Measured scan of single mutants.
Amino acid sequence: MLSDEDFKAVFGMTRSAFANLPLWKQQNLKKEKGLF
């Protein structure tokens, strides 16, 4: 599990902003970052 700081560094957004994205968009971002 990423820390909040690492999460923001990897995804360029906060966890709450990420959580507001549609599920497909979350999955695409995870795949792009190799976290899926």
Rank of each mutant, 00 (worst) to 15 (best):
M1R: 09
M1C: 15
M1Y: 12
M1W: 14
M1V: 13
M1S: 12
M1N: 12
M1I: 12
L2K: 05
L2Y: 08
L2P: 08
L2H: 05
L2E: 08
S3N: 11
S3V: 04
S3P: 04
S3A: 07
D4T: 02
D4R: 03
D4V: 03
D4N: 05
D4I: 03
D4A: 05
E5K: 10
E5Y: 09
E5D: 12
E5F: 06
E5C: 04
D6G: 10
D6K: 07
D6S: 08
D6F: 10
D6N: 08
F7E: 00
F7T: 01
F7G: 00
K8H: 13
K8S: 07
K8V: 14
K8C: 06
K8G: 05
K8L: 15
A9W: 07
A9M: 12
A9H: 12
A9T: 13
A9V: 12
A9F: 10
A9R: 13
V10C: 07
V10W: 10
V10N: 04
V10I: 14
V10D: 02
V10T: 09
V10Q: 07
F11Q: 00
F11E: 01
F11R: 00
F11D: 00
F11G: 00
G12F: 02
G12D: 05
G12R: 03
G12P: 00
G12K: 04
M13A: 01
M13K: 01
M13C: 04
M13Q: 01
M13E: 02
M13N: 01
M13Y: 08
T14L: 03
T14F: 02
T14D: 12
T14R: 01
T14W: 03
T14N: 08
T14K: 02
R15I: 10
R15W: 08
R15T: 06
R15E: 06
R15D: 03
R15C: 07
R15P: 10
R15V: 10
R15A: 10
S16D: 13
S16R: 11
S16K: 12
S16M: 12
S16L: 13
S16E: 15
S16N: 11
S16Y: 11
A17S: 07
A17I: 05
A17E: 15
A17P: 00
A17V: 08
A17D: 15
A17F: 05
A17M: 08
A17Q: 14
A17T: 08
A17Y: 05
F18K: 00
F18E: 00
F18H: 00
F18G: 00
F18A: 00
F18L: 02
A19V: 06
A19H: 13
A19K: 11
A19P: 01
A19L: 14
A19F: 13
N20H: 10
N20L: 14
N20P: 01
N20M: 14
N20A: 15
N20K: 15
L21H: 00
L21A: 01
L21V: 02
L21T: 03
L21Q: 02
L21N: 00
L21F: 03
L21Y: 03
P22V: 01
P22S: 04
P22A: 03
P22L: 03
P22M: 02
L23T: 10
L23I: 11
L23E: 10
L23Q: 10
L23S: 07
L23R: 10
L23G: 10
W24R: 04
W24H: 07
W24T: 05
W24C: 09
W24V: 05
W24F: 05
W24S: 07
K25D: 11
K25S: 05
K25R: 11
K25H: 11
K25Y: 08
K25F: 09
Q26S: 01
Q26P: 00
Q26Y: 01
Q26R: 06
Q27R: 13
Q27P: 01
Q27E: 15
Q27H: 13
Q27S: 09
Q27G: 05
Q27K: 09
N28A: 15
N28L: 15
N28M: 15
N28Y: 15
N28Q: 15
N28C: 09
N28V: 13
N28W: 15
L29H: 03
L29K: 02
L29Y: 05
L29D: 01
L29Q: 02
K30D: 04
K30W: 15
K30E: 14
K30S: 11
K30F: 15
K30V: 15
K30I: 15
K30P: 02
K31Y: 12
K31N: 11
K31F: 12
K31L: 10
K31D: 08
E32K: 06
E32A: 10
E32T: 06
E32P: 03
E32S: 08
K33A: 15
K33D: 04
K33R: 07
K33L: 15
K33T: 11
K33S: 12
K33G: 07
G34Y: 07
L35Q: 12
L35G: 09
L35P: 08
L35K: 06
L35S: 11
L35M: 14
L35E: 12
L35D: 09
L35I: 13
F36Y: 12
F36V: 13
F36E: 12
F36N: 11
